[in-house]
Design a protein around this nucleic acid. Structure first.
Lengths: 206, 206, 206, 206
DNA sequence: AGATAACCGAGACGGTACGTCCCGTCTTTTT
DNA sequence: AAAAAGACGGGACGTACCGTCTCGGTTATCT
């Protein structure tokens, strides 16, 4: 009973939903987020505007769902269908982290993902509600993988016992995000490697 | 020769400029960046729309300048008028960094600065041109302070010789930015302290 | 064979029909014809939209039928149940006509009838098809009463032999309609009397 | 201080106004009043919607003004520039009135005028405010001509002294309007003649 | 001192998109 | 098979701003 009139989701048109996802993603890719309009999405999807307004509260919400859907599809295609995914554990923590961070760099730089990711992040920075959903649905699951790998590393003695994995992970991910978001310097594999080395080894001399 | 008609900046109305800064900042504070319009700024500032379009290319540019001006005013008021500012050097690197990062946390959490900073950051994430100006005018000068302090620390033997200060600084600033932007967890003094300790000492056991 | 799918009228829900009539009339009375929508009628009647579209071609048609029904109900209630109604014949033609025209004035001025009558008339002026039905079902029967009374008057020598009753009647009814529709001047009993006197006696001196 | 924001009419674009008149009239002629939309008028006139909403309160008001303008233009073109126009006075009242009523019939039947006139009349029937303007600007000036001619006739002894010209005129105009609006029977010159004869001579035998 | 620019306030203009309301059709479930 | 319910593609509504443009009215130099 949140809204005065909640639409009946059992009658929802799957066809339209998919068309809207596709239209939203392609338009953001082609013309950028700011120039993407709900009217434009509706037109390209061959859908009435109301069908969008009925199911989503904002342009950002549409894009977020479209993006989540994109991720799920990719996961289904790539993975063996298993939802879960893991950071590899070869015993060499530094190597494992570098592998993952390099992959993250690749994804952030991939033009297919860059525009919508930036758009969503920017929207989330300004809109706490959207941000919460973004973090919960997309970011947190990713970060949990780090938490698990770091815990394993603690048990193996590769990470100090007192370290809080949630903070540790931000030492790895934060710098990458910072560079990518603010474009201060180029985002490369070398940078990813350096971040891992610095974070594990510390800045102070031993 | 860039524009067909470059306005004569010597004739510019200082009065209007200030009024526009004030209007822009107060509107963003009250209603948020997205709902702030150029027409609204002009109306509140008691200024014709053209006066804004004559001197700024976009809403974001207005806000950026207004924000820079805000910073300058604060600096003039607080500082002894000296433009330059420095990270203290007590000899205790960790303590010095914690002091600065705690101050950063305070600023990011201060409601007076939060809304416009978020607005500008979000705009910059999506608009490379604006981002460049934002980084150059506001961010880079701040980051240079870290570079200098870290260089001093290297000379003093408190930081390993091979460390690149530009990467090192991101190990300190990146995590804070990450938390603040994405609101993953609370941004506190304790967190700032932990980041400094982890970054200096490293995650791996010694 | 008119429509591709003619609904089976024997199965029609009497309950719904009445509810639609009531809803239509009350909505037109409350908010005016233009702001009355089929969706609104359906909602107030507690009826599916399709139930209206199944049985009526347009909003105007619904209202026309509702109005006819209203008239029938009134007739049944007032009259002895006889559908037929007559202009009285006391032998004094002028008096008889004044009686009827005064009653017409009263009806046109009655707020209960005014709004829907205006709405229907306006719709008919612009839509010939609806107009034809309006005239056939509502107006013509009324006008026939004048034709009959005027014929009787001709036989009695109260109206010249050569006069066409259909034109004569318009000399009586036309002026009233003109005033009512265009609100040029107040519509009163005195006016009705004057119209009868002028029409019977002529404008020219004798 | 009727409206909160009255636009500055001295800055109004004459060009746009004319284009809107033309577009409105042509669209009503082509597709009918109901299917004519403000958006359509704006598009055909090459004008922003707001330019229409700024100066007119409704579609009907636009059309009314366009129609008045049309009349003025026709008057300027036909007449010697004199705004005033008169019912001829040949001494034969019946002949003079027949001439005018026949011309009225011709105009009402002319497809160029029929659609917009019907549309405006229908709108006025339902909207008292618009009706008042319609009557004041278009109808009343016409009716005044009858008043004047009838007064002259009274002085000449062709009309009884006690007759109220305002009612007399409705005996002439009302029947025509009734037939035209409700399409009860064909509207012809013969009908116009009959109305004049009946009205002047009266229905009762002499 | 008068001419002549330019900026300035104001806001009308041609547009685009907004978010809402209804249209008339279609589909699902219930009676 | 009709009816209640309501999602759907579509289209117009009336509003809010966009960025451009013209209009007097101040300034503020440059003859």
């Amino acid at each position: 009973m949140a809204d005065t009139k909640a639409p009946d989701s059992t009658r929802r048109s799957e066809r339209s939903r998919r068309a809207i996802y596709d239209a939203a993603l392609s338009l953001v890719g082609e013309t950028g987020y700011a120039k993407t309009t709900i009217e434009g999405i509706a037109a390209r999807a061959g859908v009435g505007k109301q069908t969008i307004y009925r199911w989503w509260p904002s342009k950002a919400a549409v894009l977020l769902e479209a993006f989540i859907d994109l991720g799920n599809q990719a996961a289904e295609a790539a993975g063996a269908g298993a939802e879960g995914y893991e950071i590899p554990d070869t015993g060499d923590l530094a190597a494992d982290l570098k592998l993952v961070l390099r992959a993250t760099v690749d994804e952030l730089v991939d033009p297919k993902y860059e525009a919508p990711t930036r758009a969503l992040t920017a929207a989330g920075i300004v809109d706490p509600e959207l941000c919460a959903e973004f973090v919960e649905k997309l970011l947190e699951p990713q970060l949990q993988l780090y938490v698990q790998r770091l815990r394993t590393a603690q048990e193996a003695g590769d990470v100090r016992a007192g370290i809080d994995p949630h903070i540790a992970l931000e030492l790895l991910v934060g710098p990458l995000a910072h560079r990518w978001l603010l474009r201060t310097r180029p985002l490369t594999h070398e940078y990813a490697d350096a971040v891992v080395d610095y974070a594990l080894g510390g800045l102070a001399p031993r």
